[in-house]
């Protein structure tokens, strides 16, 4: 009986809430453009290879270091790889790594941040754990993780998926601390405000208070962390690759293309412009998307 009422009661407002959020979102021009650009990038890297069918690992040594041409719209690198094909293939990996790793670190960070901000008993231990993770030297940590888990994952999931899981995991668990500290700070500030006390005294369950009142109020910091998180995940992945701790060298990624191209800046500028643009555009579009989502979810905006 109680189940039925609780389940039935919030239903109509929930539907209109979604619609209202979408309505808010649509009003946000930047957000719409961001959404379009993001969808375009995703479509390009997933559908693009069916249109531009050159194999990204095809080597044509006679056609190395070429500028743009009909056959190679973005030119070729110093081994004669087609740059467009490389960027499309690199985009699939970079986007997948960037978004999954960012989500992982965001979920971890938010979880730790909210718990330690909200539950006083857990604040000390969780924040000391955060201090520990902040202090750990990244490179030796990576070397150890890779030494311990690479072969196991390779055996279980194959070389590509295995490395993918490893990299997402590594980036995720080494980048959640900032989000956690920031969210905790916000939660501490929000927690002491009147409406939370009111909700508490009205007998609202703790987890509902967190979901309904705390989370929406710390959303904007989380969104900023998310956009910055995608960028740093893409860059960190490239750092791992060129240290020999990431994907094998025949898996192009945006960060790696940018790194390899940096020395060829004067010979073939398109080798750095395109991957650099791809990373920047992705981050920009996610940023505007994040802005729009935050505005749409803002409880005070809805009230207006």
């Amino acid at each position: 009986m109680t189940d039925a009422t609780t389940a039935a009661a919030p239903q109509p407002p929930a539907r209109s809430l979604t619609r209202e959020i979408w309505g808010q979102f649509r009003k946000h021009t930047g957000g719409l453009i961001g959404l379009c650009v993001f969808i375009f990038i995703v479509l390009a890297v997933f559908v693009g290879p069916y249109i531009h069918t050159i194999d990204p690992n095809k080597i044509d040594i006679r056609a190395k270091n070429q500028g743009p041409s009909v056959l190679h719209p973005l030119g070729t690198d110093n081994l004669g790889h087609d740059m467009l094909a490389q960027i499309l293939a690199g985009g699939r990996i970079s986007l997948a790594v960037g978004i999954t790793a960012m989500l992982l670190s965001l979920v971890l960070g938010t979880l730790v941040g909210v718990i330690s901000g909200y539950i006083k008993k857990l604040d000390g231990p969780l924040m000391r754990l955060t201090d520990l993770f902040l202090a750990l030297p990244l490179l030796p940590l990576l070397l150890v993780i890779i030494m311990l888990f690479r072969d196991t994952l390779r055996a279980a999931f194959g070389p590509e998926t295995g490395i993918f899981i490893l990299i997402v995991f590594v980036i995720g668990i080494t980048s959640w601390m900032h989000t956690a500290r920031i969210v905790r700070g916000d939660v501490l500030a929000v927690k002491s405000q009147e409406f939370i006390l009111a909700a508490k005294s009205s007998g609202m369950r703790e987890w509902r208070i967190v979901l309904r009142h705390i989370l929406p109020n710390v959303m904007s910091s989380i969104m900023v962390s998310a956009t910055l998180g995608i960028a740093s995940a893409i860059i960190t992945e490239s750092a791992l690759s060129f240290l020999g701790l990431g994907f094998p060298s025949d898996f192009p990624t945006w960060g790696r293309l940018l790194f390899d191209g940096a020395n060829f800046l004067q010979i073939n500028p398109s080798r750095v412009i395109w991957p650099g643009l791809a990373i920047s555009l992705t981050v920009l579009s996610v940023n505007y998307l994040g802005d729009a989502v935050r505005d749409a979810l803002d409880p005070r905006m809805l009230k207006r």
Binding site: N57, N78, L243, G244, S249, D250
Partner: peptide, 29 residues
């Protein structure tokens, strides 16, 4: 790990493919 060695790896992989030999590349710090 060294950009010249990774270039050589890519080339050798390509030639070995032409004689029906597959290779999985790996570079270690």
């Amino acid at each position: 790990t060294n950009s010249v060695r990774q270039g050589t790896q890519a080339l050798v992989k390509d030639w070995w493919q032409q004689i029906g030999v597959a290779s999985e590349l790996r570079n270690v710090a």
